[in-house]
Structures are given as structure tokens and as C-alpha cells.
Design a protein around this nucleic acid. Structure first.
Lengths: 329, 329
DNA sequence: TTGTAAGCGTTATCAC
DNA sequence: GTGATAACGCTTACAA
């Protein structure tokens, strides 16, 4: 797989145009140059099919106009929407996106970091789980959803507020027997706060809130067991369930409909993420919507910030509630 | 956003290790070198935190170990699965992926091509719609799902075979009044063959096959009109529908359930793509599954093929049928 | 084997 | 405003 051996270079353009090398460079950097010179250079470049070699340029300028995006996965609706938003945002600022997938593997995460560092990206936006990730402290880094350290800015949705919002909605919709369900507990992170926020509201009202949090590996069976053990004469002990993600909510809904209780007539369900099936379609379920576009914008903003001495260490973005058929309204 | 001004270079490592520059280079290229030299160099590199600058390397070697992936979008389940597979496959071969999103905009497609050409990627894998896309003929290019020209290899699913398969399944499941539905007709491409294949089977059996193909902009309303105008006393004129994508099938299903006919009891539905809601979950609907992983592998294979003189101009990969709840079995 | 030096395609600093 | 020329960090003959 050999690339063109003799792609035209600035030197060729200079020769063709009969001007000096420096002049050609100036033309391609929008530095003032005599009008007829510019014309000659542009003509020659077009004729030769010349393209700037941004590698050579980067070597000189120490800037590559590229950023790495490190994500566990891109098929999960939330991650894919995030990837799309970040990629678009970078592109809008004329940055290329180098995409690295880690499959939640801490070692792969470290390898990705290495790789993109060698590639001299101008910065990294990462959603990673390795608590002891080593990254060049001189390379701008923005962490999404995970808190790293004081000097690595983290941008996340307002997970605590989202949890509160879910509880308030459920209250408003008449629920009095709440349940919180969570799976795939990862390293301690921003996501924990969804439960904290949810629980705080019920506590304040003096209402007991049930809760089942499962570890990664346990699968979904325990949820089914839990639910069916809380059925009494075809009636579920809960009338409002908050699931830590839309993905979980969808599965729980399926379980419930199998078990008997109807959604949303007998039990209402709220998820978290606000992902959609297909672009332009509705939500999977009633949900707390993460501001994915703003998440992306903010991350890129922070990443490209010239002055890195006074960055916030955490930016929390507001979430919204959206009905999606699993609540009564 | 300034990168570290004084990242250690080979020169620094050489000085630190007390060896010549060339020796350091050899160590990092696994070229034999005295054992104690190697050790000294490695030690020095670790101490300084040295990282190869792959830009400088690429400048010299004319190889960047990176490929561009150009896609319309990454939130659509099919595209996101494809992106993930391609990215993983490239990564397995130590290639970086530069992701460019075009939003189906022919001009954006051209801009992406420009951009990645300037970045001197080693090749491009593109799923594009611009029929007159200009790409450097010396740059390896593989087109997914669209046929370009004789000298640009295209890899696609066996769309014709998939159409046949859908028809055969429907027949096998007892359907006798088939309908084909398609939306978002793009430029003529591989996708057209789904209908060709589907139709051919019915024609062969002497069965009439109804068909409604809509243009991009018309939206979904005409489908609803069509369906309801083909209802007679609560009964639909069709008992088997083949939709050009899963996305369409899901929407049609929703329409049908609103209109009256039950899926799959009264009418069976087959989609195309084989995408899933969440990783590890079932399909959206009964469907013809595209071999996404093989699509990705093949594309990367072809892209990285050293000998570009004898590449196939089209590789068709086999599809499979998978039940997903919208057919009776 | 190890060291030296000439580029790779740019940009940037100068004199002109 | 223009044109040589020296880097940038690396690979690679080729000389030692």
C-alpha cells in the first residue's frame, strides 16, 4: 500500500510558478503577497494538483489540528450520539477527529493514549474508566463523565439534578412507591450521583425508596427475580421506577410486561440519557435527557482553550425531562 | 492551546544515553543494535518520557499508519456498527482512524476528502453519495455500498440476494400478498438491488408484488396514506411487507398497529440491516442481517492491499435472515 | 555494529 | 514584498 511517490510539493509549485518557495508558503498561509504572484502560485498549484502536507506543517508549527476522541464504544446510542457531536464540533473548528475505541478495557485505554500521543494530537477528549491512566500533563485533556484530578477538567451532565428531576416527576405523576434500578456499576463516578439525587428527594418527603444496584457481571436475571418477588396478587409493590439508563429501562419494561404490570398504567418508568432509536424518532422511554450537544461543545471549548491555567475542574450541564410513553401524561 | 514546547526528541535521548542519533532511531525501529546500547537507549527514553513523533516519521517514510473513514452519520445503528467495526479492524492492524462525518452532503464529502488528503492518510474508506467525488487516484480508496468506477473497489452486502431471501422467507411463512416499501431513495446504488431481488422471486412464482418507493423529502405520511387506502374492513390488502431498512420497518410497524392490523398475526414484516437496539439485545424486527464485521474486514483488507493492480471492483458479502418478532415462527 | 549527514515538506527569519 | 536558508524530528544510506 504505497502512497503516491511523487506528490507535488511546494518546491514543485514554486518552480512551476517561477517564484520562490517562501512565496508559495505565504500564499497557502494567507500572508499578504503580490496579487500577480498569488495568481501565479494558485494557478500552478491547481495545475499540479498540489495539496498542503499537513504533516510537514505540523512538524514545523507543532500543531496538528487534530484531536483524539477516546470512547469505550460507539454502538451504544449515548456514545454514538456523543461521538457524532464531538466530531462535528471539532470539525466546525477545523479539527480532525482521531477516533479510538477501548471496549471499556483499561489497558486498551492506556494504549490509545500512547498512540495518539505519538501522533502529536493537539488534545484528547476521553471517556475512560482506568483510574490510573497516565497521560502527558502537557497535553490538553478533557474528561467526560469521569472526574480525574483537579487539573483535568471534567464535563458531565448534572447527574444529581437529573436524579432529583426523575423523583420530582414521579411524585408529580402520583407515584408513592418508588424504586431505583441500576446495573453495570462502573468505577465510582458521576453516574453515582443519579441515585444520590433521586434518593434525596424521597428522603426529604419522608418516603422510603427501594433500590437495587447490580454489578457488571451479574446480568439482568436478578432484576427479574427482584421484581417477581415483589409482586403480590398480580400487583407490583412499586408504582414508579427510575432506571440508571434508557437501556436498562427498556429491558425492565420488557420484563414488566411479561410479568403482568402494564407500563405506564400500573407502573411508570423513567430512564436516563435521552437517546433515540433512529434519528428524528421519539425516545425509547420517558427519560432524563442529557444535553449531548452541549456536552460536546463544552468539551471542545475546554480542550481548545488557550489559557490552561484557569480551567474549571468540573462543568455540570443541565438535564431535562422528556416524556416517552412510559409515564402517564 | 500550546503543546509542550520542549517534548523530548531523539536527539535528547541520544545525548542522555550517550549514543548517536542513528542508534536511537534503530532501537525504535527494532533494527539490531548492541544489547547494552539498546538498554541505555531504552532507559534514557523512559527517563525522559520520550515518545516517537509519528508526524516526523511519516514525513520521512511517506506512511502515516492512518486511514480516513468517511460516513454520512454515526447515530444510525447501521452506520455506527459499521464505524465501530472498521475502527476496530484498522486498530487491529495498528492503524489510526480519522473519522469524518458528512451528513449526506455531497459538498461536505468533497471537503472531507480534501482534508484527509492533506493529512496524508494512507487510504480512505468511504460511504458517500456524491457521484462526482474527486479523489486522488494515487490514494487507496475503498467504497462501501456505492459503486464508483472500475478502479475503485466497492464492498457491499449481497443486496440482491438479501431481497430474494426476504421474499423466500415470506413465501415460506405463507405470505401471498407481498408489498415492498422504500424511502430515502438515494443516488442509484447497491441498495436498489434489494427490490430487484425481492421482485424477482415473486415474478418467478407469478405473484404480483406491490411496491411503494418514496423520495427523500416526502416523509412518511404517504406510507400511512397508502396503507390505510389499502385497508378493507379492518383487513390489510397485504400479508407480507419487506422494508428497505430496519428503520423503516420499525416505523411501518408502528403505523400498522395504529391502523389495526396486528404484527405478525395479520401481516408479517421483514426489514434490512440487522441492527440492534442495545449491544447484546435482539433485533428491532425480523430482518436481513448485513455482515457488518465482514464488510469492515474486507474493506480494510482491500485498502491495505499492497498490490493495487488487481483489486476486484466489487465484493458482495452474503447476508442472513434473522427472526425478530415481526414474523410468525 | 555504530556514527554521520543528507534529506522529507513545511514554516520562519532574515537580508535584500 | 520577495527570496534564500536554517530549522522541525525523524529515517536511511553510507562511511568509519
Amino acid at each position: 500500500m504505497k502512497r503516491k511517490e511523487n506528490a507535488p510539493t511546494m518546491k514543485d509549485v514554486a518552480r512551476e510558478a517561477g517564484v520562490a518557495l517562501g512565496t508559495v508558503s505565504k500564499v497557502f498561509n494567507s500572508i499578504p503577497v503580490g496579487e500577480d504572484y498569488r495568481r501565479r502560485v494558485e494557478e500552478a498549484a491547481r495545475k499540479l494538483g498540489y495539496q498542503v502536507n499537513s504533516y510537514a506543517r505540523g512538524l514545523k508549527t507543532n500543531k496538528t489540528c487534530s484531536a483524539a476522541l477516546i470512547l469505550p464504544d460507539i454502538t451504544t446510542p449515548f456514545f454514538s450520539a456523543l461521538a457524532q457531536a464531538v466530531c462535528q464540533e471539532l470539525s466546525a473548528r477545523r479539527y480532525k477527529t482521531i477516533l479510538s475505541l477501548t471496549a471499556f478495557d483499561p489497558q486498551a485505554e492506556q494504549r490509545c493514549i500512547q498512540m495518539v500521543q505519538q501522533n502529536k494530537v493537539d488534545g484528547i477528549i476521553g471517556l475512560t474508566y482506568n483510574p490510573e491512566l497516565k497521560v502527558d500533563p502537557n497535553l490538553p485533556y478533557v474528561s467526560i463523565d469521569r472526574h480525574f484530578s483537579r487539573d483535568v477538567p471534567c464535563v458531565a451532565s448534572d447527574n444529581f439534578g437529573g436524579g432529583q428531576l426523575a423523583a420530582e416527576k414521579l411524585l408529580e405523576l402520583g407515584c408513592t412507591r418508588p424504586l431505583f434500578l441500576r446495573s453495570w456499576a462502573e468505577v465510582p463516578g458521576e453516574t453515582d450521583k443519579r441515585w444520590d439525587g433521586f434518593a434525596s428527594v424521597w428522603r426529604q418527603r419522608g418516603i422510603d425508596c427501594a433500590c437495587l444496584q447490580l454489578n457488571d457481571a451479574e446480568g439482568l436475571a436478578p432484576f427479574r427475580d427482584f421484581l417477581s418477588s415483589h409482586m403480590d396478587g398480580g400487583r407490583l409493590a412499586f408504582d414508579g421506577i427510575f432506571c440508571v439508563t434508557d437501556a436498562l429501562a427498556v429491558r425492565i419494561r420488557a420484563m414488566l410486561e411479561e410479568l403482568g404490570p402494564r407500563v405506564p398504567e400500573d407502573v411508570q418508568l423513567i430512564g436516563f440519557d435521552g437517546t433515540r432509536r433512529f434519528a428524528g424518532e421519539g425516545f425509547y422511554c420517558s427519560t432524563i435527557v442529557q444535553p449531548i450537544t452541549r456536552l460536546a461543545e463544552t468539551s471542545v471549548d475546554l480542550l481548545l482553550q488557550e489559557d490552561r491555567s484557569s480551567l474549571p475542574s468540573l462543568v455540570c450541564l443541565p438535564v431535562q425531562y422528556a416524556p416517552g410513553g412510559t409515564t402517564r401524561e
